[in-house]
Amino acid sequence: MLLGACAMTLGLTVAAPSAGAQKLEQGVRSEHVLQLQEQLSDLGYFDAGLTGYYGRITKGAVRKFQQAQGLSADGVAGPATLNRLNKKAKAEGETLRQLAKLIHGEARGESLEGQVAVGAVVMNRVHSNAFPSSISKVIFQKGQFTAVDDGQFNTKPTQTSYRAARKALNGADPTNGALYYYNPKIATSVWSKSRPTLLTIGQHDFTR
């Protein structure tokens, strides 16, 4: 939910599994595999423990990524797959991960639609003159998100949170332009409750 919160900064790094690795496949255990898993996780394709072992789950995640990118979906991370993964991770990984972490911290337990709605509020703020013009600045703007204030932002997002973040980044907005949301069962802000409600999704009322 939205709440007064102190802004925090977060340093995120993107690993590069193709650096020094030409081919990764099932049965391999290495630091390169761990980096591969980290990137797949950041992009929402891998939702398991980061072990450094290329097993069945990692192979399936690689295959999903390959299918999404129009590559040969054999589940083997060869040069073409690793190069594409590096480019996607550098372009999207940090932004996607930040939004997924906020969604997870604010709306885990909500439906996919409810999580997309929270992400959409962030995107609507980015496009509003009343708020900062980047996703990161909106997320860490002082006095806005409970999850940033209480540390829930730092918990690992689920696959659903990544899906919701990706949908919001691609323009999905079930709120029809909402800039705020709150949980009426626990919110104490009179100002929040004074805003006209656009719609309710799960536990959240969405407002402008």
Rank of each mutant, 00 (worst) to 15 (best):
T146E: 15
S134T: 15
G177I: 12
R166T: 15
T158E: 07
V148H: 03
Y162Q: 06
G171P: 07
K156N: 08
V122C: 00
N176R: 05
S161Q: 00
Q141N: 08
T160A: 09
Q141W: 04
N176W: 03
R125H: 02
A168R: 08
Q144K: 13
G177K: 12
F131C: 00
K142L: 12
G151D: 01
N154T: 08
T175M: 09
V122Q: 02
Q144F: 06
Q159S: 13
K167S: 03
K142G: 15
R163S: 11
Q152A: 12
L169C: 00
P174I: 11
K185S: 14
G177F: 10
S161Y: 07
A178M: 01
S161T: 09
V122S: 01
R163M: 12
N129Y: 03
A147E: 09
H127M: 14
A172Y: 04
Y181E: 05
P184V: 08
R125Y: 05
T146A: 15
T146P: 05
V126L: 08
F145E: 05
S128N: 03
F140M: 10
Q141A: 14
L179A: 00
A178P: 01
F145G: 00
D150V: 02
I135M: 08
V121N: 10
N170D: 15
L179R: 10
I135P: 13
K142I: 09
S161E: 02
N154Q: 13
F153T: 03
A172H: 01
L179E: 08
T160K: 11
K142N: 14
Q141I: 10
F140G: 04
T160Y: 04
G171N: 09
T155W: 05
K137T: 14
I139K: 08
R125L: 02
N154H: 08
N170V: 07
K185Y: 11
A168H: 05
V148Q: 02
N129H: 05
V126P: 01
V148E: 07
R166L: 13
S134G: 05
G171S: 05
S133L: 06
K156P: 03
V138P: 01
T158N: 01
S134L: 08
A164E: 10
A147L: 05
G143R: 09
G151Y: 03
Q159Y: 05
A164R: 02
A164N: 06
K156G: 04
N124H: 11
N124S: 14
M123F: 02
D149A: 12
T175C: 00
T155F: 06
L169Q: 03
G177Y: 12
T158G: 01
T160F: 08
K185L: 11
A172M: 01
I135N: 13
N176S: 14
S161V: 09
Q152M: 12
Y162P: 00
A178Q: 00
T160I: 14
F145P: 00
